[in-house]
Write a protein that binds this DNA or RNA. Structure first.
Lengths: 199, 199
DNA sequence: CTACAATTGTACTATGTAGTTCAATAATGT
DNA sequence: ACATTATTGAACTACATAGTACAATTGTAG
């Protein structure tokens, strides 16, 4: 009987989840390893047993998030199959942000904003996550196109880019303003445009 | 003859400009006072003579930027009086970013992304800057409306919000991806939408 | 020149930071 | 039981960090 690598490492998981939350709240650079350990009730040797260094933790956090995203375990539903789903997708971000008093932006965008030249491993992780989300959007618009429900001139991938940009911009602006009006207005306009492309 | 407060403090200015550049490049938290001083060839006592602390420096940097913005001394022209101007406004951001190898996002958005609860002075500074830019956009759309060149149903302020969101999102996404395709696609869609509202 | 304020250089303190060391303990297979 | 490996606790190192103290120097006004 081949023993599968044990995947039950509660301390490791707790560290990752705590780190994710702190990174989301205050960014990577403002979060020390010690703070993560204190909040996750873990010791230093646990940390450096599970992670090579802080950068490796950031990587692990992103991979953990990516896993949840792929398995649809996140509050944001990325299965977009109708206009209604797309609306829900947009407004879910608003809802999540409001639930946090508009104190935080996109957890991934926040990490991405701190990237500097040379941090290419982390950058690739984030690109992977972004790509997955963009693909969900693309698939929806491609589907519409195949069904002949979109004007011939439109490129489904470009529409996905557009949605993604509005989402990221909206989350950032809402965080800075500590209120989501601008975000909501932007979503409204984006949806009005997209629907105008239907035929 | 009343002596006006001397505004010629080359060391102070150099510190602010150096700090602005480093904040833009790597964010506030990743930039130490010592690094700013080394790069601006200034000493510690100069720093704490001109600034109360690091937060005060961030405030000063933002106020300096705000001054440049108001006096139209920045590479981005905020006097938007025609559709051509609006296009230029959008694409200037792309151009600036490309000139930096898509290694940086919005200098202000980058600082804003690092905000945490309680940093309300800095937040207000950023809101001031954002508001100024949003007003430039609003003015343009209001002007169109007054001239009867916009459909009656549209709210000029909402269009300004929309432009601003696309700009912020695009800059962030382009920085993370280290290329501006998604940003450019989004601008293209945003402009297509906005122009569709003309009558 | 002289007094006084503006400015700067150098050295310092206290604390936070990432990461290491290593012995102690727990778990596992034979 | 025994050996081996996985896991953890606690103290520690080396360095970076924000901010201070204060004397030395420069500029300026009478």
């Amino acid at each position: 009987m081949v023993k599968v690598k044990k995947e039950n490492q509660p301390a490791r998981l707790k560290i990752i989840q705590t780190a994710f939350d702190l990174f989301h709240k205050q960014g990577v650079n403002a979060t020390s390893v010690d703070e993560i350990l204190e909040k996750s009730q873990a010791g230093k040797s646990q940390f450096y047993y599970y992670f090579k260094n802080k950068e490796d933790l950031v990587h692990s956090v992103l991979m953990f998030f990516y896993g949840q995203l792929k398995n649809n375990e996140l509050p944001i539903n990325n299965k977009i199959e109708s206009w209604k789903d797309l609306e829900r997708w947009f407004y879910n971000f608003v809802g999540m942000q409001k639930a946090m008093n508009c104190d935080r932006g996109c957890p991934i965008g926040t990490i991405g904003s701190e990237l500097v030249t040379g941090q290419d491993l982390i950058r690739q992780d984030i690109k992977l996550i972004f790509e997955f989300t963009r693909n969900s959007l693309s698939r929806f618009f491609h589907g519409l196109k195949v069904k002949g429900e979109l004007k011939d001139s439109v490129d489904p991938d470009v529409l996905a880019d557009f949605c993604f940009t509005v989402m990221q911009g909206g989350l950032l602006v809402a965080k800075i303003n500590r209120e989501s009006d601008i975000f909501e207005n932007s979503i409204q306009q984006a949806l009005a445009y997209l629907k105008s492309l239907a035929k």
